[in-house]
């Protein structure tokens, strides 16, 4: 229920003027917010000469994308990012599901304390502890690997919390019924809890994928070669100011690296927004 949705029985001329002004303000805000991205699209699809000349007759071109693609090993970066987010997502699903199940349906000594210790990670994300985590990765001999980028994120407090909340809403009777039929703990989890929580998995998956697609700092610290660098780090290396690359090419590269997320979002906007809402309500 929003304020502007209130019925307005008395619509005098003055009121409708203010109403129109208000609507205009809303559209202006929307236009202002999308403008930077529209401008980036403009730069990316036009020759460099039109970077600051808004001429509607300007020729469209894909040259910027082709030049960006050839200037750095973006194909490899795409592959690296794809591998990274897959490894993280699968591990997160498995690890968080198991832990969430324990918190939702088992009573064990120290449960509250362990749960509090898990929640600490909501505040202290792995990148905050990058100095110490880097040291750990050196000791494990994992520097510059996909595991080094992924391991600190695999046991996600956010995921455990989200799935625990979902599992708590599953009726205990279903659990009991499955056990009577002879299912063990893992059987019950896979046959009852996981299928019933599918929307939460979708929500968590989307949040996780977009987080790790966008993550820069920790991968920047822990990788140093083309064969492991994800897209974000690749873009950072590519567009460093001293490289002297043209703005139109940088725009093309920036859009290119965001393209899968962008296209996914535009196609499944509803699901995206609903998933983020679901993940946010808790």
């Amino acid at each position: 229920m929003s304020v502007s949705a209130l019925p307005q029985p008395l619509q005098s001329r003055e009121q409708s003027f203010w109403h129109a002004l208000e609507v205009l303000g809303c559209y202006l805000l929307g236009a202002l917010w999308i403008l930077p991205l529209l401008y980036a699209v403009w730069m990316a699809f036009h020759p460099a000469g039109y970077e600051v000349r808004l001429d509607l007759t300007a020729p469209l071109t894909l040259t910027n994308f082709i030049q960006a693609w050839n200037a750095a090993p973006f194909a490899r970066y795409f592959l690296n990012t794809f591998v990274l987010i897959s490894v993280i997502l699968v591990s997160q699903f498995v690890i968080c599901t198991l832990a969430a199940y324990a918190f939702a349906r088992y009573d064990f000594r120290g449960k509250t304390l362990v749960f509090m210790l898990v929640l600490i990670q909501l505040m202290i994300m792995p990148e905050v502890l990058m100095v110490e985590n880097y040291r750990t990765m050196v000791k494990l001999g994992l520097v510059d690997t996909v595991w080094a980028m992924g391991l600190p994120y695999m046991a996600s407090a956010f995921g455990i919390f989200l799935l625990r909340q979902a599992f708590l809403t599953v009726p205990k009777e279903l659990d009991d019924a499955a056990r009577v039929e002879g299912a063990g703990p893992l059987g019950v989890l896979l046959k009852v809890y996981v299928p019933l929580s599918r929307p939460i998995y979708v929500a968590y998956g989307l949040v996780s994928v977009s987080y790790h697609w966008n993550n820069l700092l920790w991968p920047l610290v822990i990788t140093n070669s083309v064969s492991t660098r994800p897209l974000t780090v690749g873009l950072q290396v590519f567009s460093s100011p001293d490289q002297g690359v043209q703005w139109s090419i940088i725009s093309a590269a920036a859009l290119m690296t965001s393209a899968p997320l962008l296209i996914g979002f535009l196609l499944f906007q509803r699901q995206f927004v609903q998933s983020f809402m679901r993940a946010g309500i808790k």
Partner: peptide, 19 residues
């Protein structure tokens, strides 16, 4: 409007910072 408000948040900070 919802799309225009939400779009910046799903893009990588590194990409929009370059823009």
């Amino acid at each position: 409007l919802r799309m225009s408000f939400f779009l910046p948040t799903i893009l990588p900070m590194i990409a929009v910072a370059n823009i």
